[in-house]
Computed example of a mutant assay.
Amino acid sequence: MEKKNVVVLDYGSGNVRSAVRALEAAGAHVELTADPEKVMSADGLVVPGVGAYASVMEQLTNIGALRWIGRRIAGGQPVLGICVGHQVFFEEGVEHGVQTAGIGEWPGTVERLKSDVIPHMGWNTVQPPASTKLFAGVENERFYFVHSYAVQKWEFDVTQPAMTPPQVTWSTHGTPFVAAVENGPLSAVQFHPEKSGEAGAQLLRNWLGTL
């Protein structure tokens, strides 16, 4: 089977080499780049993210990536967000009292987790919906999280009967939070599949299988 071409978006986010290696191990041909033509022509685009929400949004905006990401989603071209690259697809993030507008594909606010132990660091189970494709075969496995902020309330209003509502996967650390969303060409996960062992590798293979 021919390898799928995947671009890991290179916009200044740190620690992306592990994501590149994990995708390669999952069977993809991977390139780390911010070249617009390559971003738009790739079979799949991965948006990584570590650090502060506001910083990631600023970096994405500075290289013009918001336009490319929007065009890919509108055209049905697959996109996968990871960690803060998952969070930015919501309406906004609030960190240390600073409110930052997100990409806005989904309603919701990224806020500090309500837990006595912050950050949430380590392995945790998830609760995906029965119709999940992303978690097929790993529904009961643990995934590796490193974060202090998350979306803890999901309010998606399907205004058109023909619209298929997004599939939401939950996890819990002090309080329930959104661990992943599957929404047509756009998928995003709060955890790090590239650090999640065989479960993460299978999830990446599942995503590549949708390209």
Score class of each variant (00 low, 15 high):
residue 8 V to D: 07
residue 17 R to M: 13
residue 158 V to F: 02
residue 84 V to Y: 13
residue 201 A to I: 01
residue 86 H to S: 03
residue 160 Q to D: 15
residue 29 H to K: 13
residue 83 C to V: 07
residue 164 T to H: 14
residue 147 H to K: 07
residue 173 H to I: 09
residue 81 G to N: 04
residue 32 L to Y: 05
residue 40 M to S: 14
residue 79 V to Y: 00
residue 53 Y to K: 08
residue 152 Q to E: 14
residue 32 L to I: 03
residue 163 M to R: 14
residue 141 E to D: 15
residue 102 G to W: 00
residue 89 F to R: 00
residue 153 K to L: 11
residue 182 E to P: 13
residue 121 M to C: 05
residue 207 W to L: 05
residue 40 M to H: 05
residue 160 Q to M: 11
residue 33 T to A: 11
residue 154 W to V: 13
residue 111 E to M: 07
residue 41 S to R: 15
residue 57 M to G: 10
residue 80 L to W: 03
residue 165 P to W: 02
residue 181 V to I: 14
residue 204 L to P: 02
residue 166 P to E: 13
residue 13 S to C: 15
residue 139 E to M: 05
residue 20 V to H: 09
residue 32 L to C: 08
residue 13 S to F: 08
residue 191 F to C: 03
residue 40 M to D: 14
residue 73 I to Y: 04
residue 180 A to P: 03
residue 177 F to G: 07
residue 145 F to K: 05
residue 116 D to A: 13
residue 32 L to K: 06
residue 115 S to R: 12
residue 112 R to Y: 05
residue 83 C to F: 08
residue 155 E to Y: 00
residue 208 L to K: 06
residue 21 R to C: 06
residue 84 V to S: 11
residue 42 A to S: 10
residue 120 H to K: 07
residue 120 H to R: 10
residue 135 F to C: 12
residue 55 S to R: 10
residue 154 W to L: 09
residue 113 L to V: 04
residue 66 L to Q: 07
residue 176 P to W: 11
residue 21 R to N: 14
residue 204 L to C: 00
residue 192 H to Q: 02
residue 103 I to N: 03
residue 168 V to Q: 13
residue 150 A to T: 04
residue 6 V to W: 07
residue 180 A to I: 04
residue 57 M to T: 09
residue 178 V to P: 02
residue 64 G to V: 10
residue 151 V to Q: 04
residue 112 R to P: 01
residue 151 V to K: 01
residue 92 E to W: 06
residue 142 R to Q: 15
residue 39 V to M: 11
residue 43 D to C: 03
residue 136 A to I: 01
residue 100 T to M: 11
residue 2 E to Y: 00
residue 193 P to N: 02
residue 53 Y to V: 07
residue 2 E to R: 10
residue 72 R to W: 11
residue 117 V to T: 08
residue 181 V to C: 04
residue 26 A to Y: 01
residue 68 W to E: 12
residue 65 A to E: 03
residue 55 S to H: 10
residue 56 V to T: 15
residue 84 V to T: 13
residue 17 R to D: 10
residue 112 R to H: 11
residue 25 A to E: 14
residue 153 K to C: 09
residue 54 A to V: 01
residue 124 N to A: 10
residue 155 E to Q: 09
residue 201 A to G: 02
residue 172 T to F: 09
residue 42 A to G: 04
residue 161 P to T: 06
residue 26 A to T: 02
residue 103 I to K: 03
residue 204 L to Y: 02
residue 210 T to L: 13
residue 211 L to E: 03
residue 169 T to V: 08
residue 57 M to Q: 12
residue 131 S to C: 11
residue 47 V to R: 04
residue 11 Y to D: 03
residue 121 M to F: 11
residue 192 H to S: 00
residue 198 E to L: 11
residue 64 G to R: 11
residue 1 M to R: 05
residue 118 I to D: 05
residue 22 A to K: 03
